[in-house]
Simulated scan of single mutants.
Amino acid sequence: MNRKKVSIFGGTGFIGSLLTAALSHHGYRITVFSRDRNVQNSASCLPGVEYVNECKLEDEALIREHLQGSEFVINMIGTLDNKRRRATKAHVAFPKRIFEIADELGVKKMIHFSALGAKAGSSSTFLSTKGEGDKELLDLAQNRQMKLAIVAPSLVVGYEDAFTYHVARWVRTMPILLLPMAKAEIQPVFVNDVVDATVKLLETDHEQTVFELAGTERYTLKEIAKKIASEITPRKRTIIGFPNGLASFIALFWGFMPRFPYSRNLIKASKTPSVTDRQDFEVLGITPASYESVRQYEMPTTVLDKYYYDRLNARRPVKS
């Protein structure tokens, strides 16, 4: 059987690992490019999955070699780095170059992951460079054979998502939670729905190019924290919004730490509502799950021992 090949950049993270597994189950051959060494996750041992380890953005010859024969390419690379030069490289220069190389090699379609609210000129380095990258790709696609689809999700949640884990950890350990970005508006979308949408975009063509993917309900971060608190502990938890200015000042000194839960860039991004009135899931024939329907069963909030975070990083089963 001649199986179609998909190449994925940034495919070792939360969404990428699940997408790789789903594509393997659908019979695709997958090549995952990673800048890390000896990547091991839940998709590593699946049939038809190949990892190209220690592949940096500058390794164009290596990228060309392993991109050969691909019908599709998916770019999921993203960074919350505060340095505009590094963010521009990751979100603008690299996606543009990958598009050009893939088009030269005869790839049929590129799916590029952006973010809901991405816009050039945003105060957030993340959102502004993502917006610049989207515009560069849209301009390129007008004059090239290869088709383009841009996926712009709101906050993606599901089993193993770091956002829910951090909120749950704070709520469990602190009787009074000072919550940064408490007023941030989000429209949580279930990771399985994002994966299904991506597979649909590979298998079908649409006139539409940009797909804004969001769940069915809108919340503030504080509202979600209250929901998590009511589930994981019978003890009363007081949740108070922490001023973004003060949180940003703290992140200036501590935000570089590996497990620090937020950054100055993330605080700036939270000022832009991650919501949409569009119904792009319907365009793809998908009914998105509500946050309420998946929260109790898919969110990692029930067991939080001292090794929990390490198990998530290693993609190992969590004890129940």
Rank of each mutant, 00 (worst) to 15 (best):
239 I>Y: 10
277 D>A: 12
8 I>M: 01
262 Y>W: 15
150 I>A: 11
313 N>W: 00
61 A>T: 10
119 K>M: 10
14 F>D: 05
227 K>L: 15
276 T>R: 07
203 E>A: 12
223 E>H: 00
257 M>C: 02
267 I>V: 13
298 E>Q: 15
145 Q>D: 11
111 I>D: 01
137 L>M: 02
282 E>A: 15
217 E>C: 06
120 A>Q: 13
278 R>Y: 01
124 S>K: 09
138 L>V: 09
1 M>A: 13
268 K>D: 14
206 H>E: 07
308 Y>N: 07
61 A>S: 14
194 V>P: 01
63 I>W: 08
241 G>V: 06
204 T>H: 14
68 Q>L: 11
231 E>K: 13
121 G>F: 01
288 P>C: 05
60 E>K: 09
233 T>K: 08
320 S>F: 12
146 M>E: 02
128 S>Q: 09
189 V>N: 04
159 Y>V: 02
24 S>L: 05
54 E>C: 14
257 M>Y: 13
101 I>M: 09
87 A>M: 01
86 R>W: 05
26 H>D: 09
293 S>M: 05
102 A>M: 06
99 F>C: 02
251 A>Q: 09
269 A>F: 10
29 R>E: 13
118 A>S: 11
220 T>M: 13
148 L>Y: 04
142 Q>Y: 00
111 I>H: 00
284 L>E: 03
312 L>R: 08
274 S>G: 10
300 P>H: 05
141 A>S: 13
236 K>E: 11
26 H>G: 04
316 R>S: 11
145 Q>A: 09
26 H>C: 12
211 F>V: 08
